[in-house]
Amino acid sequence: MGKLKLKEHVITREWCKGCGICVHFCPKQVLELDDQDKVFAARREDCICCELCELRCPDLAIEIETEQGSE
């Protein structure tokens, strides 16, 4: 069994209100707001799957999908 590995940042754009909580508190600065104030994963390769963005999102708009990584 390997470590959890990021599969995808699943973002429900219509639910995102651009409050920036996920962006600000991401420990690896993975997330940014686009020109419409919607979140997107600007540096997805830096994501450590801590899921804090998902847990803190007031709008249930972001989900970290993971998969088992290889050893």
Partner: peptide
């Protein structure tokens, strides 16, 4: 019913998030 009625950045959404978890 989403997106919900609460303002951007309202903590209540996060409380709901934590409760559901």
């Amino acid at each position: 019913f989403f997106p919900h009625i609460w303002c951007p950045g309202c903590g209540h959404g996060t409380v709901m998030n934590s409760l559901l978890r």
